[in-house]
Nucleic acid binder design. Sequence first.
RNA 1: GGCGGCAUAGCCAAGUGGCUAAGGCGACGGUCUGCAAAACCGUUAUCCCCGGUUCGAGUCCGGGUGCCGCCUCCA
Length: 527
Amino acid sequence: MNQGLPQPILVHDTFTAAKRELELREPGRCGVYCCGPTVYDLCHVGNARAAVVPDVIVRFLRHQGLQVKYVRNVTDIDDKIIARAQAEDVPAMAVAERYADEYGRDMAALGNLEPDVAPRVSGHLPEIVEMIERLLARGLAYVADGDVYYRVAAFAEYGKLGKRRPEDLLEGAGSRIEVDARKESPLDFALWKAAKPGEPAWDSPWGPGRPGWHIECSAMCGKHLGETFDIHCGGRDLIFPHHENEIAQSQGAYGPGTFARYWLHNGFIDFAGEKMSKSLGNFFTTREVLALHDPETVRYFLLTVHYRSGLNFDVRVDCPACGAELDREAQDQGRCAACGAEPGREALRARVRFPGLEEADDRLAYVYATLAGARRLLHEAAAVPPPAPGELLPAFCEHMRNDFNTGGALGTLSRPLAEANTLLAATKGVDKAARLQWLAGFVADMDQVAAILGCFGADPEDWLRRRRGRRAATAGLDIRRVEALLAARREARAAKDWARSDAIRDELSALGLTVKDGPEGTSWDFA
RNA sequence: GGCGGCAUAGCCAAGUGGCUAAGGCGACGGUCUGCAAAACCGUUAUCCCCGGUUCGAGUCCGGGUGCCGCCUCCA
């Protein structure tokens, strides 16, 4: 069937546990829902990945010509928000408002497109209540003391997404699942929670209260994407119970065969090989990482591996006193085993480095330097022939069509980038028109790659300038002193005083810089 | 205990049964350079183990081993 796509796209669907060809509910159109954050604190890097992944998927689907409606919710009613509000003695909605803003800032910094709709739970109480009433009417839910629970036993499909059998789940009921006398079964989950004194509450047929965690997504999907839509995204950990429960609710309300047609789940981010947890060495907010690296570098790094794989952030901390690399234990103790210094955990945390991101930053700089060179050459040319259709974009898209394989797609760029640099360096023996034509095609293709990835799209010169400025700032470098040294070295080189020239270069390299002497003069960068 | 995932070079990593197993980092050799740096070129793996299916398997099936995750809030 024609899907309104130039070529078929394969997607890995969690429900069927297999790669399937994307068949749209309506050719040419695609509805995408992404489970967004619960806004009770600054978002962490895992949240960033969970947003970048669907963002790239949406960008690619649009690039392939689909009309995409992208919905990413914000959970602004939740126990953790209430807990934080009570701790700070402010209204819960104020907490939610604040962190929803912060989330928006982080997402924008990372280059994520605005979703078409960013619904909030607090704006969908009527839809939620209506859905619960539907479930009650169908015998799939029951009221107990102002709470409403989903009757899991009444939904035969329960457990299919998460590959779980209700019997197995019940086995560990005593220890794993909190037993609540009001529930018919320990597996039943809350659709509506009666408000306790002091908690924010909304009116409902069952008394004042608030929605359970899962029902919001079912209700918001229904409202903004319809009873059935194409793609539902989220982190792996949401498969069970969150997405399982969404299916139970939505199919319970709308009938079999409704709701999301494809379930896409992204893998976790680890720090230093461990799942994030709130101990020193392996929990980082997006904000913290963005303070150390260009947001585009972070985005690029997130896209270097396939979205379903785990992604490890190496964490490196060196002792401020002796420079020794500290292991995890030393980091937790805030003490250097090599020299005995005790800088403390906080001081060490301030010295954290992410080698993977540093490598990614270098790679991005290479790409931008190549683009800068190509653009400069094209700009200087009197006449540029129309771009030659290259192989870059088709090869790139072939990987993207295979379950949005950004890692594989990025790999296809290496050859063309090297080729571009070869052409840029070639001064003789190349056909000038052919060279310009190839480079024009390269730049045109890279523009499209940039639109798909949300990377490589900045002005190359600006990006490289920003990078140097950022690194100069973190290194506490005095640019004027660097300029003075470079001027002195230029003089020495003009006089062919190599000894002095090299001495100045040594001085610069002691500052952590490297100089490059090219035909168009000397440039410098960080080593 | 139940369920799921992963195992590819020194490190990271792509691989939709079939030509010489992408790519990046690192290392080594070379071109360029006053010397360097950058850039470019080249070298750097038979895919955890055992068995099976197949004309053909890193890719499918079974059994091991080892990591990791979920089953409780979690992206």
